[in-house]
Design a protein around this nucleic acid. Sequence first.
DNA 1: TTAAGTTGACTTGTCAGACCAGTCGTGCTA
DNA 2: TAGCACGACTGGTCTGACAAGTCAACTTAA
Lengths: 258, 258
Amino acid sequence: MGCVMGFLCVTKHSDALPAQIAQSLLQRIISEEFPPGAMFPSERDLQDEYHVSRSVVREAIKLLASRKLLSVSHGQGAVVTSNFNEPVVDALLMAFHRAQIRAEDIFAVRALLEPHCVALAAQHATLQQVRRLEELAQSFEVITFEGNDEAFRRSLMKWGKLDNEFHQLLAEASQNAVNGILITVIVGVVWNSISAKMPAPPPDRFAVAAQQHLAIARAVAQQDSEAARRAMVEHIETSLHNIASPNDRVPIRIETFI
Amino acid sequence: MGCVMGFLCVTKHSDALPAQIAQSLLQRIISEEFPPGAMFPSERDLQDEYHVSRSVVREAIKLLASRKLLSVSHGQGAVVTSNFNEPVVDALLMAFHRAQIRAEDIFAVRALLEPHCVALAAQHATLQQVRRLEELAQSFEVITFEGNDEAFRRSLMKWGKLDNEFHQLLAEASQNAVNGILITVIVGVVWNSISAKMPAPPPDRFAVAAQQHLAIARAVAQQDSEAARRAMVEHIETSLHNIASPNDRVPIRIETFI
DNA sequence: TTAAGTTGACTTGTCAGACCAGTCGTGCTA
DNA sequence: TAGCACGACTGGTCTGACAAGTCAACTTAA
């Protein structure tokens, strides 16, 4: 009763039991006692271990799951996911929606971050990263945007997935992890939100973007920072026009937030 | 039973009741049916309204509270906070800790974002914003960093609060809300995390920073974008040396995460 | 009249135990 | 051997009870 962690036995019995247990569990996740991918103890087990009721355990688990640190499924149990970027995307999406951010503003920031980042990447990218980058850049070309709306959405999703990886890879190669996380997160916001509602543009728009991806990859491969920077500036500008109108607000997709 | 929103009555009874209700409530928060600061319905009321058990309602509320959209206190009830930036700070803190971000990397990104931002602010700041900026810049000077460690922490906290507002105000004045949110969030990370563990530096370090704040405010007041940019570059550099060693990792404060 | 204290009607927090509802492996049966 | 039924897990929901905190209205004493 109010006795957390057994021996630790917090006597102060007036404070958020679920939060305390969630904290304890989080610490055990961070310390890799429960490494990513591992099975999490069942609610009944935790109930016994912490000597609290199952409701408390459930709320604690819910707390962690809402941060996407656990993935729980009915009948099976919970597994540790240790997903630390997605919660940022979710929260940022919310903040952007709240502030009625325009697509234009997002791309203005990207136009600041990414050229700088790609210039760094041109200096620091490993051979392996360059190879993957070129591979990715080439795969944009084979995506076709013909057909009805449903086919367009499918293609768009494929494109978005590649685009995510492309920009994320560049960010990683820049050797500044903050850059990496911010760009990953912002690109995530763009694809999670804005692009979901974009109208189908003329197909050749994407051909231009595909060429730009190739140009960026080439410049990075040649370690030409300035060319890379220029190519990225151009690409960001094109992207804005491709996937949004400047005054588009960030639409919220509540279903992904909870 | 499994019948959400009364008339809506989702017959599919196999999926995350609490999440559905949290979604519904979130929508009602966003639509300002429950405006920020307003009292939230009690658990029993919601239980009746949605025709589910209290456990389900509690979990739904917990979901929203964990996103800091509600603030619930024992015996009183829950109030709507609509706090959309803090969740980003929390999540980002987590992501940074996970990626073992160095303080240096954070300040490298600030050195990219903030000078650009302050240059815009110099062009777009309103008279009111300029006044407040100068007011803030002056109040840094009167903070003294003498005395024992506890006194130092108190002064540091006061400084941090002002610093937060100073940089946030500049970000707002830049007229790019994305910039505003990102900078607010990053400054939040810095003050929430790194500065909590900083050792007490020689007091005159802060005097230099105070002077820089004044220089920035002056440049913005004179609408001199370039001077503002230069002053900010210098300031960011000083700040890094003031509040962290370059190789400091972002420490995690789990207690604030849950 | 005023100040302090008590009571009661709220609120959220926790507990216990029951049952429903999925998932998966075991072992029986055809 | 292929397929099915069962049982032993898992999480999901419901119920009703009580503890614990808060606040306002009401009483009581100065």
